[in-house]
């Protein structure tokens, strides 16, 4: 506990306050466009797998994926990875297309619970729905930084943090149960730009193998 007489400036929001302020910020996101940079690193040494201890680290952990994200309210979402490899993910709510040009493969599948719970897709989700599936905390009620914990126990990740600057999300950090941490940093963000709905449609190019999942 802080030393007696020392002014504690950091006050955690109650769950209700945190939920209300995250809700308010998400509802301001009519649409959003931003560059993203995603990296994954191992965090908990105890959970580190044997091979990494023995120095045989697959270099995935240091790899950075970057590209452009576009989001529009009520479930319109586009995530285009351009480096180091190309992949396009597009959904307008019900089905999700994952297009891999280097594999000449496009997978179409229903937007399932696991996919819709990914950090990025939360930005396009409906705020009330998000509140139902996550416990929302705000360690410092003066700072728009929230940590979400899935209510479902078999969740694919343990916690998801999201940081805003003004009304714009700038970073998301996902901690999974493998002791890994995936950080997504957004840059050059544009809040509420005009984005045509066609950006969230996908027509597989000729010659691409379409796989229904």
């Amino acid at each position: 506990a802080p030393a007696a007489g020392q002014m504690t400036t950091q006050v955690a929001a109650t769950e209700a306050q945190a939920t209300t302020s995250l809700n308010a910020l998400l509802n301001k996101l009519g649409s959003l466009q931003a560059n993203f940079s995603q990296t994954t690193k191992a965090t908990a040494p105890s959970k580190q797998v044997a091979s990494s201890k023995a120095g045989l680290k697959s270099s995935h952990l240091g790899q950075t994926f970057s590209g452009v994200m576009q989001v529009k309210r009520q479930g319109l979402f586009r995530w285009e990875t351009t480096s180091p490899m190309k992949q396009l993910i597009v959904t307008s709510g019900k089905t999700v297309w994952i297009y891999d040009p280097d594999l000449q493969q496009a997978t179409r599948q229903t937007l399932d619970e696991q996919m819709s719970n990914t950090p990025a897709l939360l930005l396009s989700g409906n705020a009330a729905q998000i509140m139902k599936s996550y416990k929302v905390t705000q360690p410092n009620n003066a700072i728009p930084y929230f940590v979400l914990y899935p209510r479902a126990k078999d969740g694919v990740f343990e916690s998801l943090a999201i940081r805003f600057e003004g009304n714009i999300p700038t970073q998301m950090v996902l901690a999974d149960s493998l002791g890994q941490q995936t950080t997504v940093v957004f840059s050059d963000a544009k809040l509420n730009p005009v984005i045509a709905n066609s950006q969230f449609q996908f027509v597989p190019p000729k010659g691409v193998d379409v796989i229904d999942q």
Binding site: Q38, T40, V49, S51, S52, A54, L56, K57, S58, S59, H60, L61, Q63, F65, W79, M85, Q87, I89, I98, Q114, M115, T118, P119, A120, L121, V156, L174, D176, L178, Q180, T182, V184
Partner: peptide
Amino acid sequence: FYAWAQDGDRFAIDLTGALGIGQ
């Protein structure tokens, strides 16, 4: 996406699905 380190017959493979799921 995958990353694969092979040293003799010792190997380590990481797979990451779209949006970082399915690690």
